[in-house]
Structure formats: C-alpha cells, structure tokens
Amino acid sequence: MRADLLRECGVTEAEWQSLPNVGARYAALNPWWGADGNTSLTQSRKSRLLWAGCARTGYVRLPWVYRLMVDVAEQVADGLVPEWTELQTALFCGEEGIWGCGDDVAMRQAAIDRLEARLRDEHGLKPSGDEPPYDSPGQECWEKQWACWAIHGTPPSGRWIGDGRVVSALFSDIFGNSFRAATLGANWLTDTAVAIARQAYESRDFSALPILADALQDAGCDSADVLSHCRDPNAPHVRGCWVVDLVLGKVADRPAHPADGQCPPSPPSAGDGPLVFFDVAPSRSASCRITSSVTCCSSSLT
C-alpha cells in the first residue's frame, strides 16, 4: 500500500476508513499507487491478482476461455510472460466483442465462435472438454467480468464490481491496511517460513498459513497484524496475499510496458476526471460524494 502517497494527496487514515465501500478504496489508490508517481494501481501486479482471485471463486463454473484469461493474467502478474502478448490481446479483444453483443444470442454466439477459432488457429488452444458452456446455469456475469478485468488490469470506470463481499475480503487479503505498512525482519524469514509461503503460493492452497504464523513467531516475529492475518479462520487468501508476498519478497508493483498499438485504452487517470466504482449495481437511489478525485457511491437497490 502507498500510504505515503495517499497522505501527500491529503487523504487521512480517518478519511480512508470512512470510504463507503471497497470500490471507493480501489479508486482512491489508483492515481497515487506508483512509487515513481507514474505507475497506477491498475498497472500493478496486485491489481491483476485481485481480479484473478475474485474470478477463481467461481473458476469451476467459468467457460474455458474465461479460465484461460485468469491463468494468463496470473502469469502476466508474476512476470512469467510479458504484457500484452498476442494471446493476451486476443483474449481481451475477444471478450470485449462478446460483451458488446449484449443480449443478442446469435451475435454473442458468433463472437464466441470467432474468438475460439482465433485461439485454435493462432495459438493451438481448445477446450479440454470438462468446462461448462457459455451462459450455463449457475454462472454469474461478474465472475466473467472479473476474469476480463484481470486480463486488462482493472475494471472500467463506472462499472459495479459484482459481489462486494468477495471483492472486499480479497482486497483486504492483498492490500492489507493502507496506513499500517508491515515489514518483516530478515531473521524472521527462516527456510521453514519461506518454504511454507512458497508452497502456499504455488499450490494456491493457503490452509497452512497458521503454520506460517507459528514459524514466523518462533523466529521472533511479534507483528500482531502479520500473525493475526495468517491465523484468522475467516480470512480468505489468494495469490497476492500481503503476508505471503512479504515472506517471498514479491515486488509490489510491476508496471505495464505494452508494445505500441497492442494495449487497449488505459483506464482514466487522476487528470481525466473521477473514477467511479460500485459495490452493487447503481440505481436511481444511488447517492454520491466526491473525495479528492474519487467518486464514492453507495447504492440501495429499489
């Protein structure tokens, strides 16, 4: 978290805590995330992992193309593949084409067929046979949106973020507390602690985090925030978990450097006007207030 940059822009801890929802907090971080003042939150590794983690909550229900989006986004986030390869661009543009068809079933199917043909012909990719079809029962539209946002790096301004409970929980897991930046002593990072964290990260099985807390504490860690985060039985964890990242020395930000002409338009910056995100779909009863360059919206569905 970039609490120092938030403070420089006049955002206090009290104001941060008063922001009405996780969408507002995400938007508040965006213009000021980069360590050099130029890299936005939306270009960071953490942002991709947030949306990939959200999409993984419904991964088994996703069609194969959306599963591929999540997998590729995670590879991009960890620097295993460069930004905006032909595959990443094909996935993003193809998904935009599908969503652009709205409720027109025939147009949507044609867009799906075009994307699958491109993936097959240009990249040798095809479904394995165990994935559900598009628009099958039980699928949630926001799980597909989260997968697309993981590919792009951020939701477009003005979109609601889906199930705010899911996003809020994973936002806390990945970003922690903006105004309580934790550090780990070098002597706490024993071989045992690092091995537990690495296994959790690579396997996406974070059930051993209480054991990680024990290993850190045995090595002298006395950070209540670190230990309680690992031991909280109700806290979900995904790749990007702030404690696991600290143990593994993961870089917080990895700026995007797309090739000319390949990257879709960037989301609005602080100078382009306020970013707007909703925890739920906006309705006629939505009320908004402005905090710095962020529009904070709280909506009740009526």
Rank of each mutant, 00 (worst) to 15 (best):
E15M: 11
E131P: 05
T89E: 14
L248V: 06
D232A: 10
G220C: 01
V294N: 02
L119T: 02
P282V: 08
S18E: 04
A27C: 03
P236N: 11
S178E: 13
A286S: 15
N30P: 05
S293H: 09
S157G: 05
D214V: 00
A181V: 15
P210E: 03
G176Q: 01
M1S: 15
P133K: 01
L87A: 14
G94S: 11
A213R: 07
E95G: 15
A147N: 04
P20T: 10
I98M: 12
V22M: 12
A55Y: 12
V247T: 02
L212W: 00
T190C: 01
V70G: 13
C221T: 07
S128P: 03
T183D: 13
F175K: 04
H229K: 02
S269P: 00
H123M: 10
K250H: 02
T190N: 00
L184E: 04
I290A: 11
A256Y: 08
S292K: 13
Q199W: 06
I112W: 08
D222W: 04
A215N: 07
F92E: 12
D245F: 00
L115R: 02
P265A: 11
D218K: 10
V72T: 10
W64V: 01
G185A: 10
D36W: 08
Q75E: 12
H229E: 09
P267G: 04
D163T: 13
A28L: 10
W160S: 15
A252D: 12
C9I: 08
C296K: 06
G10L: 13
A195L: 07
W84P: 02
A256I: 03
A186T: 11
I98N: 08
P236Y: 01
L209W: 02
W99M: 10
R254G: 06
V76I: 10
G94T: 02
G23P: 06
G124H: 05
K250Y: 04
Q262G: 01
